[in-house]
Design a protein around this nucleic acid. Structure first.
Lengths: 296, 296
DNA sequence: CCCACTCAATACCTCCAGGGTATGATCAAA
DNA sequence: TTTGATCATACCCTGGAGGTATTGAGTGGG
């Protein structure tokens, strides 16, 4: 049996006349007669009673008509859904984000993606950079968001946004009283750095910036993420360089101050990471949204 | 797209290897490759990612695998159900019975049919003989049960059972005192006859039997059915000839007495009626049960 | 009562597409 | 580098789907 048989059968059942059905199917009458006979023979069931006025369904034929319509509808639906899946409009994508630093860009980006692709389920996983790389290789996720990504053999990187750096200081800290804080001031104050974990990280960026200006920072404490870092600033552990988006973390007694006289490239990127050669249309759609987000 | 494509696709998806799938399908590898390519092209979707180790499903492919299995199962089920319908094991049959005279044979018969064909819904309709004939011609029913059926052009008759006739009399009636009631006695007592309606009916049978013995019965009352007839007997309207099965009607003060010295053919048939040339397998199965019932 | 009409079924032909064999291209592991 | 595994391509062959012409059967009008 074939889908063709079903199509032909439904046409004959609806027209109750082989000639008309053949016309509707754009074939001639004899082949249609034969197909119906074949179908009946294969099922071993008489589907039509032949009358001099045409063909009428038997009871078994009525039942089979229901089933045939059902099957045809299902096939229709299957192709449609599969096509949407193939265009990245239906399915699921597993996305990794890091600790707590997802404070601004990522929620907006995910919102934009959901608006454009409401039938794609986005599953978020919180992972460190090292975990993201492993999960990508094991195909547990398709994209990861992170900062300070070094180029890798099998993974591709794409920049999402760039943020200026601000200094988190206690409101009662001497630096907080200055009109503007020169970058070089940092050498006199203990710094809270983050995140610990896989290198290179934001820590190295900060140390690099300092050494460009010819000093080594005093490291007060290394912590896992920006939230903890700002908490320690509030606790008097020193000052902390944070990406601009961290200002959404409103901590009582902590202010975010811009620096002046900064080294060039005084900013940090947010990038996303995905497998080289990943042909998933959903990933493509996701990266498309990422690119559009970057433009705005 | 074809059911063949689905079959092939499922095989490849399950084997994750075209060669093995081809072996399982008893075809060679190249045609299978081509069929998969065709399917992908028709859908416009990449269903597999080709690796040097075989084929793995894309996300869209996973989805389509689900759908394909679904469709194939539905096709399987459709053929199976249609075949059962074609064998008269699944479906519905509309059966007409007459007024209240269905006191013994028909319930047993329907029970036997339901036991053999549990998935056939038997729908009962109460109709007079004339209504049955009309309903058969209009295909509203497939079988009717009745008595005294004259041969018809387009309808076939089949005898179900034959019953002896008994006389319903009041217990205090003079005839009830006799050891045996000779048939000729009927000429001296008013008779309740049934049913009214389309001729020939049981009425004509009784009148015929009397005239065979050279007398005309005194007609006390004509009524619609046996139940009413026996009720009138209880009310003193006279006596009434009833088929044996009517004895299941236990009426206070009414007894059923056998007659002696009866004319030949002193009995009445229960027959069923169906369209000539009706090829319905359910009707065939039903008539099969009727035939088996008749034997027992 | 017969003829014309309407359908479905049959006979026979053509041609395309599905299947086969042989071979190529690519990648991984030994 | 070689070998083995896997998918893709090239080319041929045959079965079957579709076409035309015709037959057979049953109905209704003249």
């Amino acid at each position: 049996m074939d889908l063709r048989h079903l199509r032909y059968f439904v046409a004959v059942a609806e027209e109750e006349n082989i000639g008309r059905a053949a016309a509707r199917l754009h074939i001639s009458q004899p082949p249609l007669t034969r197909q119906i006979q074949q179908l009946e023979e294969e099922l071993g069931v008489t589907l039509f009673t032949r009358t001099p006025r045409g063909m009428t369904l038997t009871q078994a034929g009525e039942l089979f008509l229901d089933e045939a319509r059902n099957i045809r509808a299902l096939v229709e639906q299957a192709t449609e859904r599969t096509q949407r899946a193939g265009q990245g409009k239906l399915g699921r994508i597993d996305v990794a984000i890091f600790g707590s630093a997802i404070l601004d860009a990522i929620p907006k980006l995910l919102l934009a993606f959901r608006n454009h692709h409401p039938d794609v389920k986005v599953v978020l996983h919180t992972m460190t950079k090292a975990e993201q790389i492993e999960a990508l290789r094991q195909r547990r996720i398709s994209v990861g968001f992170n900062r300070m990504l070094a180029p890798l053999e099998d993974l591709e990187t794409r920049q999402v946004t760039t943020e200026k750096l601000l200094l988190a200081v206690r409101a009662d800290h001497p630096l907080a009283r200055l009109e503007s804080i020169p970058f070089a001031e940092l050498q006199h104050h203990p710094l809270v750095l983050f995140p610990t974990g896989a290198r290179p990280s934001f820590i190295d960026k900060v140390i690099g910036l300092c050494s460009e200006r010819g000093f080594q920072p005093k490291i007060s404490q290394e912590v896992g993420d920006a939230v903890t870092g700002v908490a320690l600033v509030a606790g008097g552990f020193g000052v902390c360089l944070v990406p601009e988006s961290a200002t959404t973390l409103q901590f009582p007694g902590v202010v975010y101050a811009p620096l002046s006289d900064t080294p060039p490239n005084f900013k940090v990127d947010l990038s996303c990471l995905y497998r080289k050669g990943d042909a998933s249309p959903i990933l493509a759609a996701f990266l498309q949204t990422v690119a559009e987000y970057g433009k705005s």
